[in-house]
Simulated assay, not measured.
Amino acid sequence: MSVATLSLFRFASLRSRLWVIGQMALARRSAAWAGSARFVKLCGSGSGVGFTPQPNWSVWAIFAVWPDEARAREHIDRHPVFARWRSHAIEDWTIFLSPVSARGSWGGVNPLIDPSAERASRTAGPIAALTRATVRPQFALAFWRRVPDISKVIGSDPKVLFKIGIGEVPLLHQVTFSVWPDAESMAAFARQMGPHARAMQAVRDEGWFSEELYARFRVLGTAGAWGDKDPLADALAGAAAAGRRDAA
């Protein structure tokens, strides 16, 4: 069963930030990923926690999809690209994700479809949501003027465990990623986003997006630290304890 990973890296010095900008071209080469990940996207990050036009030059990300969790963990630990990025970063953190649902496409494909593994939409433990959109260039400025600052809404929700905005191309390719304690918390937030959801739907109806992907994941685990801690450690420990109680 396929496993996705989101790996975040923080670069402190100007030299390391210039280095990783160069890596955005070099590490994209398909030869760098031969025999490992079957889908890879290298991304910068935004200054907010969702759709945002302002870049954060210190935080960069690698989103990848692997054949299974064992190979994901092996390559995150040993793959040359991850090793080089880790050697230049002051900290890094990876979230391991099991796809629950995915619709749409990213780069012309849906990298998360796994016909051999249908998963239930209701899953215990932390749930992650990923929304990715490509804005048509001729609509980019109008999009940023019209769309509400959804990142502030996500960031202000007390239940969200983690959130970040990333993207491949500033202003045009945007990704919002968030983690919630459970499916119920995520669904409750979605219900409260009425005005924002309607604004986003209006943008879609007018054809401002050339591509969209919406995916949900079960969080399998994490590696590393972010802000000198693991932001999901308590939630994952609680889910594991609940699972043991249910099995007893």
Rank of each mutant, 00 (worst) to 15 (best):
A187I: 08
T5H: 00
R10K: 08
Y214L: 05
M193A: 14
S156C: 12
A128H: 13
V109A: 09
F82W: 08
P115C: 03
S87L: 09
V65M: 04
A233E: 15
D205P: 02
K163H: 12
L112T: 12
R15H: 10
L172W: 07
S105R: 09
P137N: 00
S185I: 13
A27V: 01
E74Y: 05
R17Q: 07
S36D: 12
G227R: 02
S116A: 13
A233Q: 14
W226A: 03
L220P: 13
W93V: 05
V160S: 02
D234H: 11
K41C: 12
L171R: 14
G227W: 02
P148D: 00
F139V: 11
A202W: 15
A248H: 12
I95S: 08
P195S: 06
R136V: 04
A61C: 13
S87I: 09
F51D: 02
S210K: 13
A120K: 14
W226N: 05
A197I: 07
A190F: 13
A117H: 11
A239R: 10
M186A: 08
L172N: 03
P181N: 04
S101N: 07
F189A: 02
L18M: 11
A64R: 04
W106G: 08
G22W: 15
F177A: 04
W144S: 00
S13M: 06
A247Y: 05
P231D: 09
R17A: 00
F162Y: 13
V179W: 02
D68T: 07
V169K: 12
R245C: 04
L130G: 00
G44F: 01
L42A: 11
R38D: 07
I62D: 04
A140R: 15
A32R: 15
W33Y: 03
A89S: 15
I154R: 03
A64C: 10
S101A: 12
P137I: 02
V169A: 08
G227Y: 02
L172Q: 12
F177R: 03
M1D: 11
V3K: 00
P53M: 14
A128P: 05
S156T: 12
T94A: 11
S47Q: 14
H88M: 09
T222M: 01
A199M: 13
S36A: 14
V59W: 04
